[in-house]
Amino acid sequence: MTDTTSTEVAARDALDVAGRHAGLDPVGAELIRLGENALFRLQSGVIARVTRTGQFAAAAREVALARWLEANDVSAVRAWPDVEQPVEVDGRAVTWWWELPPHKEGTALQVAVALRRLHDLPLPSFDVGRLDPFVRLADRIERATTLEDEDRLWMRRHLAVLEARYANLPDGLPECVVHGDAWIGNVVSTGDGEVVLLDLERCSVGPPEWDLTSTAVRAFTMGRITAEEYDRFARAYGYDVTAWAGFEVLRDIREFRMTCMAAQVAAENPARQDEIMLRLACLRGERGPRPWSWTPVP
Score class of each variant (00 low, 15 high):
T4I: 15
T5Y: 03
T5I: 01
V9K: 03
R12P: 07
A14T: 06
G19D: 08
H21P: 10
A22S: 11
D25R: 10
D25G: 02
V27K: 08
V27R: 15
A29D: 11
E36T: 13
F40H: 11
L42E: 15
Q43H: 12
S44G: 10
V46L: 00
A48S: 10
R49G: 11
V50C: 12
Q55A: 12
E62M: 01
E62I: 11
A64S: 15
E70M: 00
E70A: 10
N72M: 14
D73M: 02
V74D: 09
V77Y: 00
A79L: 05
V87T: 09
G91T: 11
W97N: 00
W97D: 10
L100T: 02
H103Q: 11
T107P: 05
A112R: 04
A112N: 04
A114T: 09
R116M: 01
R130D: 13
L131W: 05
D132K: 11
F134S: 06
F134L: 05
R136K: 14
D139Y: 08
A144M: 02
T145V: 14
T145E: 13
T146D: 12
D149Y: 12
R152S: 07
R156A: 05
L159Y: 13
Y166E: 04
D171F: 05
P174S: 01
V177A: 15
V178P: 13
I184Q: 07
I184H: 13
D192E: 10
G193H: 09
G193Q: 05
V196G: 06
L198C: 00
D199K: 00
E201F: 06
C203K: 03
S204H: 05
P207I: 00
P207M: 10
W210C: 03
W210K: 00
S214R: 12
A216E: 03
V217N: 07
F220P: 03
G223P: 00
E228N: 02
E229A: 11
Y230H: 00
D231N: 01
R232C: 07
R235P: 10
A236P: 10
D240K: 10
F247H: 11
L250Q: 09
R251D: 12
I253N: 14
R257L: 13
C260E: 10
C260I: 10
M261L: 11
M261C: 10
A263H: 01
A263P: 01
A266C: 08
E268V: 04
P270N: 15
E275A: 14
R279D: 11
R284N: 05
P289V: 03
P291Q: 06
W294C: 06
T295I: 05
T295W: 08
T295V: 15
P296G: 13
V297W: 13
